[in-house]
Simulated scan of single mutants.
Amino acid sequence: MLLLIPGPVQTRPEVKAAMAQDIAPWDRDFQAVYARIRERILAVAGGIPGVHATLPIQGAGHFVTEAALRSFVAPGAKVLVPMNGAYASRMARLAREAGRIVVELPLPDTRGAVAADILPALDADPSIGTVAMVFNETGSGIVNDAAGIGDALRGRGVRLVLDAVSAFGVLPFPLAEHPECDVLVFTSGKCLEGMPGMGFAVARMDRAEACAGQAGSWSLDLSDVLAHARRSGWGSIRFTPPVQAIAAFDAALDLYEAEGGQRARLARYAANRDVLYDGILALGLRPYLAREEQGPVIVTVHQPADPRFDLMAFVEALKRRGVLISNFYNTAAPTMRIGTIGAITPDDMRRAVGAIGAALDEVLPRAA
């Protein structure tokens, strides 16, 4: 089966094989693996040793995103969220339900946010101390200009919390160049092509220490993750983790480095995207985004206007042809979400385009 969703993604055999073992989380041999992973992540993030640290949290991306918001935005403080996608809406909800004051900035979900969108909102309310934003929106496929926005925030003394869940390892955002960023977060089962189960924050240690005690949750307190690492060692973890997923992630990082790192992976995903985007057009379908706004992680497509079209029937027809896509959408207009990330190639995408065409013929047969 060719898995084309924006995470969890299709993985290599080496990654799957790494899970086929029993592991004691606090065994010294495994602690060495865990400590090594933290260092490797810091390098991918472009962080500075001694300034930034990798702070893991078990669970899905929502868990580590909530941990970042709780840990770096004080209760009752204002946080600006650019609202241009489903995951921005989720980020706003996480912050609001954690007792932070969310200032929503409505933007269209058909283009990425830029600094010119953000600065007027900060001018209008100087009490906003943090911007929390999604780097790559897998609802529509847009990419927000995290680097440009970060540069603008740095000049204002405003902090940044960056949800890089579906961007990390592919879209560059070197932390050494962005001291305004308190923390970025991502998960193991996205662009680094590991298994799901672990969330990772890469954070400034001075900011984590300065914000200690404000999370309101032991489990989701990144400053406590840092304190534990300093107390018990970087190979130690607070609570029982999904150890097999961590072992698989170590193998996935080997493959990432062998491929050539961020530049090489972005090039492959961009090639996947281009094949799919062009193929969708050739089938007479309409991409949700203009080409210049289309990111490399997911291509969202308008559903056919034919009233006979049923998304679930199409997904099942496609699955019978060996291709699995999302069976839901996150846009106001009815769409289809087709991922371009994971251990897949442009040739896989060509096969997927052929399967999409055949599935469409099945669910929307032409009149004789």
Results as ranks from 00 to 15, higher is better:
258 A>C: 03
317 A>Q: 02
273 R>K: 08
249 F>C: 11
250 D>H: 15
315 V>T: 15
309 F>N: 10
254 D>H: 08
301 V>S: 03
285 L>G: 04
243 V>E: 14
246 I>L: 15
282 A>N: 05
259 E>D: 14
239 F>Q: 11
320 R>F: 03
290 A>L: 12
235 G>N: 05
291 R>M: 05
290 A>I: 02
247 A>P: 10
282 A>W: 08
233 G>F: 11
257 E>R: 05
274 D>A: 12
253 L>A: 13
263 R>E: 13
306 D>I: 13
235 G>S: 05
317 A>W: 08
293 E>M: 09
302 H>C: 14
231 R>Q: 14
297 V>E: 03
235 G>H: 07
318 L>H: 10
298 I>L: 01
284 G>I: 02
317 A>K: 13
247 A>K: 12
250 D>L: 14
258 A>N: 06
273 R>F: 02
239 F>H: 12
236 S>K: 12
235 G>K: 04
280 I>E: 03
309 F>D: 14
310 D>E: 12
260 G>K: 02
305 A>G: 12
251 A>Y: 05
301 V>T: 12
245 A>G: 08
288 Y>E: 00
264 A>P: 04
256 Y>C: 04
313 A>K: 15
232 S>W: 15
241 P>A: 10
321 R>K: 13
307 P>A: 10
246 I>G: 01
300 T>Q: 07
252 A>W: 04
312 M>F: 09
302 H>G: 01
294 Q>C: 13
256 Y>A: 00
263 R>C: 01
314 F>G: 02
252 A>D: 03
232 S>G: 07
272 N>H: 02
315 V>A: 13
310 D>G: 12
291 R>C: 02
312 M>T: 08
247 A>V: 05
270 A>F: 04
306 D>A: 14
285 L>W: 03
232 S>I: 11
274 D>R: 15
289 L>V: 10
298 I>C: 01
234 W>Y: 14
317 A>S: 15
275 V>G: 06
307 P>V: 08
233 G>D: 11
235 G>D: 15
283 L>T: 05
312 M>C: 07
281 L>A: 06
236 S>F: 11
296 P>C: 10
287 P>G: 02
243 V>F: 12
246 I>K: 13
293 E>T: 01
262 Q>C: 00
304 P>A: 13
306 D>G: 13
280 I>M: 08
